[in-house]
């Protein structure tokens, strides 16, 4: 090996080691510890028996209550992802197309909610969606409903709040993913006989797929791992894997079981990332 390549290797090593060390200490080690914990035996007294058993996983798999919860969590992830795409896409498309000199400001406004913690925004939704909230007051004032609609302490509220919280992430991903798009492509399609609808589905939508996929992955992962919003807006009445982990860890004090659920959630992430990679490769092969 020549001196030059050796020094190049040393440089690469030197530059990556600090980051790798950081990751190892703050992420890999705790995760390994958590994995070990999930094989211990715990009970509701908080007593943890050091052993090696699959009891916690068996408890999860053997109880249809947890299967339902995993299903609801997946459904929440998919539902919030799809709804977020639907409401964010027109905004992103507008921001890409606009020739307004306020474009920069508009983009900043679209992602400005990120400046506020999602906890604060969740409380905002509690105020808006509550029985005395703006939404119900307006609906009743307009005579559309007699009774306030139940918009919090249930799944509807969780969906509404999460979609809004996820929108800036989705818009950012969509904007970045529109790289290959320019309006002349729409003009070309129209000149070749495509109306607006077909121009959108044949040209705009396929070209935005990288952004849509990245946004979908990010939003799905953030949604199924989100805890504060389902907890607060759900009012402790709806259960997802993330809230269950918290309950098991802090209320029931069954750490091994909480750790097992955490790893099941991690498996769900892994599945989604594999699907994402496959889809992305298919798009890029085009």
């Amino acid at each position: 090996m020549s001196a030059k390549t050796r020094s190049a290797r040393l440089t690469v090593l030197g530059l990556t080691v600090p980051g790798l060390l950081g990751l190892a200490v703050s992420f890999v080690l705790p995760l390994a510890w958590l994995l070990r914990m999930s094989f211990n035996r715990g009970d509701s007294t908080g007593y943890i028996e050091e052993t090696f058993t699959l009891d916690s996983y068996a408890q999860f798999v053997g109880d249809s209550y947890y299967w339902d919860m995993a299903w609801e969590t997946t459904l929440l992830g998919l539902g919030v992802t799809v709804l977020t795409i639907v409401v964010s896409y027109p905004i992103a498309l507008f921001l890409v197309r606009t020739e307004s000199r306020f474009k920069g400001i508009l983009v900043a406004l679209a992602v400005a909610p990120l400046l506020t913690s999602s906890v604060v925004r969740t409380y905002g939704w509690l105020v808006l969606l509550g029985n005395q909230g703006v939404v119900n007051q307006a609906l009743m004032g307009a005579g559309l409903v007699d009774q306030p609609l139940a918009l919090i302490n249930n799944r509807i509220g969780v969906y509404i709040a999460l979609v809004e919280i996820m929108m800036p992430y989705m818009i950012l991903c969509l904007l970045a993913g529109f790289g290959r798009f320019n309006q002349e492509l729409e003009h070309a399609a129209q000149s070749l006989g495509a109306n607006r609808w077909r121009t959108f589905w044949r040209i705009v939508w396929p070209l935005s797929m990288p952004g849509v996929l990245t946004g979908a992955l990010l939003v799905f992962v953030l949604t199924i791992s989100s805890f504060v919003t389902p907890r607060l807006v759900g009012g402790g009445k709806v259960f997802y894997l993330a809230t269950e982990i918290y309950d098991q860890a802090t209320a029931t004090l069954n750490w091994p079981f909480a750790a097992a659920i955490a790893f099941i959630l991690l498996a769900l992430f892994a599945v989604v990332i594999v699907i994402y990679q496959r889809a992305l490769r298919r798009i890029e092969a085009q």
Partner: peptide
């Protein structure tokens, strides 16, 4: 078009 506007996909 000046930039051809071919559909990249």
């Amino acid at each position: 078009f000046q930039n051809y506007a071919l559909f990249p996909h």
